[in-house]
């Protein structure tokens, strides 16, 4: 088996899953909403990119910016019209989850109706993906040299935002303890809006990139949801870097994993989505806190045989 192609595909898809999942993690961290409608933030990004590129004729970069903005606005609207009013009434998590499924349906069917009426049920952003340089028996493409660094750039920018800016730190503070954030003078509703725009924007960007890579239809966001959840859950659902690692693991699991199973055990590649499901179940059974629950420093200390039973009360 030639490894270069599946590895390259794994990294490419892992990048896209990471971009899709970061917003889901951010949503849960800041608002405690398990947002199924996240799927449509991805889908709208895909459609906006395709339509703006194919019909309006703007460059792919301008289209991706449009996707970022459109999904950011949609995310903001979801919160202002549905989640925030429910939250202010003190609705329990379950209500918010069910509401998110409702929002997803409304957006997905609106998208479906619009796409159908304009004859765009199936669409792909018309940007030729070209081979750039040979890599073993395959080629590194123009798509890969954009997607992978772009994802890493988003990750780095978000990390810097969360750790080196005042609003970013305030977002983390809010995720830790909203009441304490409020009494510290943090304007939580302003920050909540910022969080939703980042959530929508990154999801829209991911959807836009996806629409260059593969043909999309109005269900493509929904069909990706299991992987998005798997990536986020692998990271413990609230961990930024955990989600990044989770995204790439899902990328590898669905590509290299299924390729290996196919080669060695004859498992059909059609079972690829089941891998995400298996990972979700496995995480819930073995380590519900995901990577976030693994204390790296004590693990390293253990490995070096230096573990001296440090601070038992540190982690819950």
């Amino acid at each position: 088996m030639d490894l270069i192609l599946p590895v390259l595909n794994s990294i490419t898809l892992g990048s896209l899953f990471t971009l899709m999942a970061l917003g889901l993690t951010l949503t849960f961290s800041v608002t405690r909403i398990v947002n199924f409608a996240h799927a449509e933030l991805v889908a709208i990004g895909g459609y906006v990119t395709a339509v703006v590129t194919n019909y309006i004729g703007l460059s792919i970069y301008e289209s991706l910016v449009a996707a970022f903005v459109a999904s950011a606005i949609l995310a903001l609207a979801m919160d202002e019209l549905a989640f925030k009013p429910l939250y202010k009434r003190g609705s329990p998590t379950l209500f918010l989850l069910v509401a998110s499924i409702g929002i997803d349906l409304v957006v997905r069917f609106s998208l479906f109706l619009t796409a159908d009426a304009t004859g765009n049920i199936i669409i792909q952003t018309k940007v030729p993906i070209q081979p750039l340089m040979p890599l073993g028996k395959t080629y590194l493409t123009t798509f890969q040299v954009v997607v992978i660094p772009l994802t890493l750039a988003v990750v780095v920018v978000l990390h810097a935002l969360f750790h080196y800016t005042k609003v970013g730190k305030a977002l983390r503070a809010m995720a830790d303890n909203e009441d304490l954030a409020r009494v510290s003078g943090i304007k939580i509703y302003t920050l909540r809006r910022l969080a939703w725009m980042l959530v929508g924007g990154t999801a829209g960007l991911a959807g836009g990139l996806w629409s260059i890579y593969l043909v999309i239809d109005p269900d493509f966001g929904w069909n990706s949801l299991l992987r998005i959840f798997a990536a986020s859950i692998l990271g413990g659902f609230t961990s930024f870097w955990g989600t990044v690692i989770g995204g790439y693991i899902i990328g590898f699991a669905e590509n290299l994993g299924i390729a290996t199973l196919n080669t060695w055990f004859g498992v059909s590649t059609a079972y690829a989505p089941l891998i995400s499901f298996a990972i979700i179940v496995a995480v819930f059974l073995i380590k519900p806190s995901g990577f976030a629950g693994i204390d790296l420093s004590s693990l390293l200390a253990k490995l070096r045989g230096l573990h001296k039973n440090l601070e038992p009360e540190a982690e819950g």
Binding site: A170, R172, A181
Partner: peptide, 25 residues
């Protein structure tokens, strides 16, 4: 200003960041 009885620091923020958040406004 207010020091709650429980949950009165931001556990995943550093000591320095907690102090910065105190001065947020």
């Amino acid at each position: 200003s207010y020091v709650p009885q429980v949950d009165n620091v931001f556990p995943s923020l550093t000591v320095m960041e907690n102090l910065e958040m105190g001065a947020y406004a």
